[in-house]
């Protein structure tokens, strides 16, 4: 049964006077991995909380797994799994108990529940920790346990709110593999992230969200292509003049200043255009110091669509993210 498994239109959510979600509409296809990519405070978690019925929907409409979140919240809850942004594990229960509790909450029959717990403990490699209290788990183990919990009931849609926040690169990669494997088994995945690479690697489609609004939606490569075919970076002995020269050339859509040089966004194959650009600059007696040609990254896409960097680089170093996740 293909089709739209999540359908949102005109969703608005206010906290008091503050509009956190400002009229978003989108649809997620059955079997897709769909991402909300956006900076802190963009409204990602708020949107997830509405879709998962934790917040009552205020304006607009939303259907999840065929049910209306406003009128059939119980049916929606039966069909979904959630991994919250913050850790939501009872510190004083064991891994096994966490999963057993969850299975019971969803009224899974005894045999199926016990079998599923064993499977999942193996999948997230927590077999050896089954009788360990969750307060004695590492951050990554907790996250894995929560993902396992989200998968207990084989939900139709799995919501993951920043699933890899605070994880080391290696564990993040393993998480991605789990998530992909789950998706291949047929679960639709809705995830939020502010990691470019995560959105890029994991999702079929991405919506860039900022200040409560969706700014662009599409496949990763599609968004990048919409921005540019290639990105060319140059440092020269006279950046000011070179910029003008390059900006006037055919195929160059935009030129942007950088600290020691500038970048040119080009809408044709950069491998052919770059030599011409270099000839042109040299022809004016300017020396070229550095050249670089690359495909646009999600970072470039984000800067392009929002007009700003995704995050304040200093505040969001991985160590800061870990500290934040640990503090919760």
């Amino acid at each position: 049964m293909a089709g739209e498994i999540i359908k949102v239109s005109g969703l608005v959510h206010r906290y008091g006077d503050f509009e956190a979600v400002r009229g978003i509409s989108f649809a997620v296809e059955q079997g897709e991995v769909f991402s909300f990519l956006g900076p802190n405070g963009a409204g990602k978690s708020t949107a997830i909380n509405v879709l998962t019925t934790l917040l009552r929907i205020q304006h607009g409409s939303a259907r999840v797994a065929g049910f209306d979140v406003a009128t059939e919240p119980a049916r929606v809850r039966e069909s979904i799994g959630i991994v919250f942004q913050e850790v939501t594990l009872d510190r004083d229960m064991t891994c096994w108990e966490i999963l057993e509790f969850h299975g019971c909450l969803y009224r899974m029959p005894y045999g199926e529940r016990r079998k599923r717990i064993e499977e999942l403990l193996a999948v997230v490699e927590l077999d050896a920790k089954r009788d360990t209290l969750t307060k004695h788990l590492s951050g990554g183990m907790k996250r894995r346990l929560e993902i396992a919990r989200g998968l207990m009931t084989r939900p139709k849609v799995l919501f993951l709110d920043e699933p890899t926040i605070g994880l080391d690169p290696q564990t993040r990669r393993r998480m991605w593999d789990y998530i992909k494997a789950v998706n291949e088994e047929g679960t639709t995945i809705f995830l939020t992230t502010h990691y470019m690479d995560e959105a890029d690697q994991l999702s079929d489609r991405i919506s860039i969200i900022d200040h409560g609004q969706i700014i662009a939606t599409g496949r990763g490569w599609d968004l990048k292509n919409r921005l540019a075919e290639d990105v060319i970076y140059l440092e020269t002995s006279d950046n000011g003049r070179s910029k003008e020269i390059v900006g006037a050339m055919d195929g160059v859509t935009e030129v942007k200043e950088k600290t020691n040089g500038f970048v040119a966004l080009v809408n044709q194959d950069g491998t052919h255009l770059l030599p011409r650009i270099m000839d042109e600059i040299r022809g004016q007696g300017i020396r070229i110091v550095t050249v670089n040609l690359k495909k646009p990254s999600m970072d470039d896409v984000f800067v392009h669509f929002t007009g700003r960097n995704l995050r304040d680089e200093r505040a969001e170093r991985p160590s800061a993210a870990i500290a934040r996740a640990g503090r919760r």
């Binding site: 934790l54 959630i82 939501t88």
Partner: peptide
């Protein structure tokens, strides 16, 4: 939160 998000 887990409980409130569940069908219980």
């Amino acid at each position: 939160r887990e409980v409130m998000a569940s069908p219980l």
